[in-house]
Nucleic acid binder design. Sequence first.
DNA 1: GTGAAAGCGCTAACAT
DNA 2: ATGTTAGCGCTTTCAC
Lengths: 337, 337
Amino acid sequence: MYKKKRSITIQDVAQTAGVSVSTVSRVLNGKVDVARETQDRINGVIEDLGYTSNLAARSMRSQKKNLIGLIMPDIAYPFAIEVMKGVNRAIAESEFDLLVYTTGDVRKSGRASAEQKYVSLLTHSISDGVIIVAPVVAEFNSDEPIVSIDPVMSNPSYPSIHATNYQGAIDAMEYLFSLGHKRIGYIGGRLELESANRRLLGYQDSLAKAGIPIDQELIKSGDYTTVSGITCARQLLEQSNRPTAIFASNDQSAMGVFQVAEEMGLRIPEDLSLIGFDNIPESKYLGLTTVDQFIFEMGYTATQMLIKLINDIPLDDQTYRMQTSLVIRSSCRKIGG
Amino acid sequence: MYKKKRSITIQDVAQTAGVSVSTVSRVLNGKVDVARETQDRINGVIEDLGYTSNLAARSMRSQKKNLIGLIMPDIAYPFAIEVMKGVNRAIAESEFDLLVYTTGDVRKSGRASAEQKYVSLLTHSISDGVIIVAPVVAEFNSDEPIVSIDPVMSNPSYPSIHATNYQGAIDAMEYLFSLGHKRIGYIGGRLELESANRRLLGYQDSLAKAGIPIDQELIKSGDYTTVSGITCARQLLEQSNRPTAIFASNDQSAMGVFQVAEEMGLRIPEDLSLIGFDNIPESKYLGLTTVDQFIFEMGYTATQMLIKLINDIPLDDQTYRMQTSLVIRSSCRKIGG
DNA sequence: GTGAAAGCGCTAACAT
DNA sequence: ATGTTAGCGCTTTCAC
């Protein structure tokens, strides 16, 4: 395991400075009751030796670490990146630093038991609190604050940020109605996810409210991948009475629609309105409308919540279980009249 | 600071299981010399109590943590994200997990002294090795392997991945030559950066090699922002004898060119070939050609290098200071004949 | 097979 | 103003 050239400890500093470890610890922690010249000498030695404190040892003893943990199974997909950006912003504005923990792959994470492991890993020491993304368990054994983003459970025991799945779908649909659309295709998926069900429900309820009968031919279900998005899009667009708009409930599905439309020579948004959930950076080049901004905001808000908890500021009920707000970024076209 | 409900320790487990801490530690670490039934009992208690070990305490004693650190000042800009994706992939394929450390903002990081702090923070304990992005110091005081990505120093004491700045510029230029371009504008910037100089040199050398005299009117320098890109692009495109192609040495500059072209009614790539360094996800929608793929690869390769070092596999000289390969993603147009 | 005890590097009383 | 000491939770000899 690599050449273990024992690293410089507080002991070494104390010894070469000719003082005790506690004195060194004092200057390290900015305590005032140390003689000016002793401070200078110690700081000099620290500089010379290139000493830096051992996080592990330190966090075992002290409380405040000024470090927040973020746990995600994978940091390479758009949702994760957007969350990280939000957290990053809140972190930048704070006194805290951030530690993102990932296994790089959902499959490696294993779920449930693994989740608890990751939480403890950061929580038990190291950090002042953690944010966990899309956790499956309802409760964590932790001695520190936890905030979750888009938990799978609808009623977890920890504070959580829930995507506005239902309202987002309603908003998207009403936006399409306002432009005159009546035949609106829906591409859903991953019905095991709470969020997927909420979106579908929003779609259905808004149709009901608008007095438009639900046409099962307009509801297709995939698995949130581009490939399945393509399949669903074909099924929708090859119908003789094809929809004038498609509501794709996630970004990958929307990409699928985009590809099929291109194949079929349909321009978006001129010939087909496409509205997607989630944030796709490319959307503005694609003529795609999105129900947007909320992923970033989820990360940002979660971080602020966590910092409040760390600083012992209680959350009110409304904040405790929070819905994010929505922005519709628009480029759909009016049709009909 | 939050209700410190003391967390469950190895002591608690030992006590309720009626054994000593060392026995618990043994089963925890999969040592074989523990009676079958004792193991089961202890595992039962661990399950019941929901015990998980304290990372800090553990890493103070043991060697292998199966954890790699990645240090970046900010995780919200395209370069950082691309690096993370690469690291993420390599991590996913390995037995290691990843800990990304960030302050969220370059300004908070401070540089130099701060860098050493972050390295030690992860290195001294916690992780088995770290990757540091764009470090300014040439040497780190660390007891563990370090690999750097795109270091500011050209000859750091640690293994490093250098962007193929010079060769990338040459490739880009030769690609443009092959399409018949002769008047090629250049937008550079940040001359304090090694990478910027290498790119400019590549531009100049390739012109020389092609026997095309260098026209200072075609070389503009900004600061790698979109705003300065716009200024430079105007200066280039408002010339009476304007260039048929522009080589923008970074992504933000390229965005600037794109905007100016739009203003002036120039289509890319039909009326103006635009080739950019670095990876812009949007480029494919913009008709932009890019010297590409290498950022992801930098992260990926760095991680593999680091894992080798951790496992005591020496790096050969060539690997020790590595250049990344390039891909030109093309959409430029042939001109002239 | 299991326990006792030492100690990793550090901080926080408690002394002086 | 500084040193002494007792642990934090864990792993690791070294006994039994």
